[in-house]
Amino acid sequence: MSIWEYANPKKFMALSAGALPWTVGLTVLLLATGLVWGFFFTPDDYRQGSTVKIIYLHVPAAMMAINAWIMMLVTSLIWIIRRHHVSALAAKAAAPVGLTFTLVALVTGALWGQPMWGTWWAWDPRLTSFLILTLFYLGYIALWAAIEDPDTAADLTSILCLVGSVFALLSRYAVNFWNQGLHQGASLSLDKQENVADVFWLPLVVSIAGFILLFFTMVLLRTRTEIRSRRLKALLARERVA
């Protein structure tokens, strides 16, 4: 029994059908806990005032926006190397979710930046990189939408995802080079010195877990829809032949 068993669409459908109620429940539970805790029961930051509450949306969304792309990269590689359809469809399913998180991070960042930096938008390296990431998501989604044959689409989007990843990384460094940042350092890191204070840390971790599960649930649901759509296409094709 290996992990590749679940690359079989039928097995994946059965497993995900069983898992979905649990992930939905956990998502709701964790998101509600993290956000309610963060919103109602944490103190204001001495410098940022109540805007610190935005962190519970901004940081998890930004993390997942990047992780979603990494997940797409991994599933694209799996498709190219082992040609499991579920993998390619999962990459397709993840893209709109990643795009949504990118937009959440950008919008909450702008709303936070207005009172804190005095501007909605600055051409800061991190902000700019996120804008570029949005463009990559848009291109990727548009390419999937433009190609009719599903296997061709899976192949081409996978190649685009690989090349795009390299250039996204390059852009990240280019942008760093191009302008010094306004954005603060990482909110979470292994180096305790850099971390946010403990009162904010626990609810933040809970809401990050909530966002991860939200991503997972959405990808499961969307992948199931994609698998059904493939089956429907196959059925219709057979009908035409008959």
Partner: peptide
């Protein structure tokens, strides 16, 4: 009590 940043905080939650 959100103070003067109520708009930004509530706006963020609403937009998300």
């Amino acid at each position: 009590e959100l103070g003067k940043y109520a708009g930004a905080v509530l706006g963020s939650y609403a937009a998300t």
